[in-house]
Design a binder for these strands. Structure first.
Lengths: 230, 230
DNA sequence: TTTTTGAGTTTTGCATACTAGAATACCCTT
DNA sequence: AAGGGTATTCTAGTATGCAAAACTCAAAAA
């Protein structure tokens, strides 16, 4: 029997390939299909009511993104959470976001950025009090996105998002329910340091924020060894 | 008549898709097919003696990489050199390589890295004297690659390479024949600053190096406006 | 002269059929 | 019962066929 019970095309992109891609990616990130789970092009095609072609093209995209391992003539599996992948993503995200912070501080007029950050902080206060995790998560993204956009680098944000997805996948396994207040506090530190143009402080605060879940990984690897590859 | 005269599969990867991908990418980077040139899946399939499928899959990969624009039901064109793409790639490469330099300097034992850098410098001296551009280019890559590898981040190098390709495409248009001595000098500065663990100097030298071609872009855009999209 | 419209061509998107290789199951041998 | 070898059954890789959207261009109408 399959690992999949019932699937539907979730997102309505343009092409079938896009929709299948978004659907499968969402399932991977939410751990509805788990690392090392075996996938089958024909099975997904049947479940989704499409042909193999868009499924295959979606799988190829997901392999490029590092979420699937396609073994020729053999099979396709959800990529295990690799220590190397984690280190790589961690490094890349730090490199991006710290460089963005530096730019944000060099900005001649950062008032608009500061307003945007404050707006998200207010939202996060509310979401934290209401324990609305998904809304908090969304505002979290907007917070980081705002920095990229106001630096005049809107194209960089999708790239940050790309590596962020991998980190989120790791973090999803070790998610602690009540980390919203801590994250909010870290965001406050980042925002205040940026707006007061304190570079050292801003870089430090962002580093702390981005590394917050690092020490939890090995615990998760012990708890779910079948997900990991170390 | 086609923009393509005679093509052969150049690289012998594993799958046909891989080979087509490498072939077309090489043609794009060498400007054998030019920005805004119209491509056709069927035409390439015929020329290369394969079916549409591997060509299509290669095209999709190249679209993801940002080298092709696929317009549904209309056509596929080589992506023009976009100012936004240039800024993005420039930012990303700086973020990566500066972060790598920081790590290299924090390395407890960087003797091996320094030896590797010196080795490439020696090679570059020779290649520069012999005016062997392609060999110099190769050693240039190895120089930057060495930094990533000796930081214990081998997985990051392919990512650097990925954004580097875009920059190289820009630089190919504005290539000045006799820049090898200047590049060699910049490499020397970088290597000596890294090996003497002078962080500020190393970052500055790397920044200068990575930005060396920036001011030439607008000239190139005037000379070949049909390649660019500003 | 300008615009429109419509037939025909070309394009990619998607579906399906086929091939070759890898994994597995099964049978035969010992 | 265990081991080895073969046949079957999966898989992804590739080829091809079909459909629908978009572009071309010429002819007709305003």
């Amino acid at each position: 029997m399959s690992v999949i019970e019932k699937i539907k095309l979730r997102v309505s992109g343009q092409s079938l390939t896009d929709r299948v891609h978004d659907t499968v990616l969402s399932m991977i990130l939410r751990l509805e299909i788990k690392p090392r789970d075996r996938l089958s092009e024909v099975q997904f095609a049947k479940e989704l009511g499409v042909s193999r072609t868009p499924v295959r093209e979606a799988f190829l995209r997901l392999e490029n993104l590092g979420f699937l391992d396609i073994i020729p003539q053999s099979g396709t599996v959800v990529a295990p959470m690799r220590a190397t992948e984690f280190r790589k993503s961690q490094f890349m995200r730090e490199a991006f976001e710290l460089a963005l912070v530096r730019r944000a501080i060099e900005l001649e007029d950062n008032s608009e950025l500061c307003r945007a950050l404050q707006r998200q902080l207010k939202l996060q206060e509310v979401h934290s009090e209401l324990c609305d995790e998904s809304a908090f998560f969304e505002s979290d993204e907007e917070f980081h996105k705002a920095i990229a956009l106001h630096c005049g680098l809107p194209d960089v944000w999708p790239e940050v998002q790309r590596v962020k997805m991998h980190m989120d996948r790791f973090r999803f396994v070790v998610r602690s329910q009540h980390e919203m207040p801590a994250v909010l506090e870290q965001h406050r530190n980042i925002a205040s340091a940026i707006c007061s143009r304190n570079e050292a402080e801003a870089l430090s605060a962002m580093t702390v924020h981005l590394r917050r879940a690092n020490h939890l990984i090995e615990g998760a690897a012990k708890k779910y060894p079948e997900y990991f590859e170390l």
